[in-house]
Design a binder for these strands. Sequence first.
DNA 1: CGCATTATTCATGACGCGATGAATTATTGG
DNA 2: CCAATAATTCATCGCGTCATGAATAATGCG
Lengths: 217, 217
Amino acid sequence: MHKPAPARRRRGRPTGGASDARADILAAATAEFGELGYDGATIRSIADRAGADPALVHHYFGTKSDLFAAVVDVPVNPARALHAAIGTDLDTAGERIVRFVLELWDERAFRQRGVALLRGVIGSRRTSSLVMGFLSRELINRIGERVGGPDGHKRAALVASQIVGMIVLRYVVELEPIASAPVDELVTRVGPNVQRYLTGPLSDPTPGEGTDRRQGE
Amino acid sequence: MHKPAPARRRRGRPTGGASDARADILAAATAEFGELGYDGATIRSIADRAGADPALVHHYFGTKSDLFAAVVDVPVNPARALHAAIGTDLDTAGERIVRFVLELWDERAFRQRGVALLRGVIGSRRTSSLVMGFLSRELINRIGERVGGPDGHKRAALVASQIVGMIVLRYVVELEPIASAPVDELVTRVGPNVQRYLTGPLSDPTPGEGTDRRQGE
DNA sequence: CGCATTATTCATGACGCGATGAATTATTGG
DNA sequence: CCAATAATTCATCGCGTCATGAATAATGCG
């Protein structure tokens, strides 16, 4: 009774053709990267989770970083979508943006990939610059141009700061009561602030008196 | 010329008494954790950076996680400080909070520790819950009580979302133009939105119509 | 039927990591 | 001047990691 038979499998190709191990592995990797970050996730554990052999993971996707790319690569073509979400009327885009982001991230598949990506990005500086470069160009700059005006990019970055903070708290860190708040509530609370960044006053209140930042490195 | 003499040191205690290796190690660890996150940082690399032997790191600080604790060891008591920053007048606290956070993080020593902590927290789920539990209780709940009212905690969490987003973009990811913006500019741009979370209208516009979130896990 | 392809496991290599304990040298207190 | 203690390096140990390549088994095509 000391051999609980941990589902040892025979050595070659299994007989029933209907087990899509590849998809299982990808799903397991998505979950694992999302929970533990890039470094924390291990091929072995991913394979375990998918009920497969570690070597099989390498067989389908190449190296670990290839696998991460496969997990993360899929999720977004958000630039176009978000562009559409802004729509024609910039004066009411605040709430629409917030709602768009929340509905997207509340979807399980997207959230998993998104959290994995975020953890990967924030976790280390190396990955950070790479992915953020893309995100910066593709998303923020585009929105900046869409917003227009001399401060378009500033406004877009400020919007991003609010959105990122909301995402991190709600989905990554899962801080209450934001994590469990209904979409509508967040839309009505956060939306107006986003709107203010987009089209609100942007006074330069005390010009020429700017405190320089950053002490020496 | 093929031996650049990599500063090999003799085997025992060095003769000049004036090298504070302990401090060097701590500084190196701070930088390393800040750049690479907890998992990415290695004792060996930290020792290298400090010009010391890996075993010396263990000698002074025990395990790796002890070292991390020593690095992030509560730079200031944030709760009390922030409490003071809010001050007596809640109606003008928005800009004060933003300024307080920015000035604190613009200080090199604090920023290094803060980024290290953030990367550690966000990098993995295990550490996430631990540290965030503390932060949630000590910071957000306190502010929630300070703000008062039935929605005090919600308001505090919303404030946190904006602050966290700003911090992540400015200090962790270093997204322009936020990363290089002068303090005053961010204060005047972000402050009013924070203020709105604190004391602005908090209408429940469409009550009873809340969309439930989160598809099944 | 037989052969190429595909799916899977097994065994193992090579490496980097954290950690430990002993060895070595300087400083300091009695 | 000697003993205790502090500061430092060295030599490993054991482990977990990713990755590779061979072995094995089923499937499908001609």
